[in-house]
Amino acid sequence: MPILSAVNLRTHFHTRHGVVRAVDGVSLSVEQNEIVGIVGESGCGKTVLCQSIMGLIPVPPAHVSYDKMSLDGEPLHTADERAMRAIRGNHMTMIFQDPMTALNPYMRISDQIAEPLRIHRGTRRADALPKALDALKAVGIPQPESRIRQYPHEFSGGMRQRVCIAMALITEPKLLFADEPTTALDVTVQAQILALLKELQARYGVAIVFVTHDFGVVAGLCDRVMVMYAGKVVESAPTAALFARPEHPYTEALLRALPARAARGQGLRTIAGQPPDLARQIDGCAFAPRCEYATPECTSVEMKLSACGSGHTTACLRMQKGEIGELGNRGAE
């Protein structure tokens, strides 16, 4: 049974310019012990997706709807604020891109890390503080006994993110959303944080949804990847399969645009045009205007995610017509 199961999630914002379909029919399922990566460019809806599940999107102006949503078998009602408060920060936690704004500058690290225990478990302060110290040790902060009495501004960016991780894991949640947690950090610090997440994930068995725009991070960390474009999932696959056989033209184009995968002096492949305005009604495939394989049919047929390999799905008309994928090339397995 998956830890998280969300079916057909939609988050629409009602704005003066029309209805912006930030997340438009995304289904997400995360198993225990699994790290699922969500990749895509700015504005594709990856952050809104996580915040919608966490119940962090203010309603209104947003409208969040879904067919089914459950956390560890229990139905999740994101609209019920009282119920969400008992779950958020307890069974389901989140770490953010900027660890400075995620921490309260007026609170000592000790009280911030202990806060979830005190609120959700009713633990007394005297009992919670030793646990906070253990959590600080677990995330590898040197001299934890003295550092725990300090304030966030006395920590570097990487150390602050470690504090956020300690805070997010102290209640032993079932699911952790990590929204670009290393984007604001230097590469050497990023590498240390990623190693820490991987280690903690193995130790506590927490499932992680990792949002990033960096394919390098995905390759090193995630078990499975979902690629998002214009509020929809266009491809979902085990990490190795995605890099070996990207089936959606958008995934393929993104991978070809990476300088790390190109030879020096060889031109990078670019993607013509720009992502669509999500306030406009999009018929058919949202990527079709920029796609090199597009046919006139692409803008009229509704795209569905369909299987193209083991655990590998893609929302491309060529797949639906059996032109690509393992099924198309090798016959049904």
Partner: peptide, 27 residues
Amino acid sequence: RALMSAIPVPDPSRPFRPPPLRSDALS
């Protein structure tokens, strides 16, 4: 060398290893 080994490579067959550094730059 630490900088090179810290770059996440978009290739899942290359195992990810954190660079052998003792602390981070700002601390």
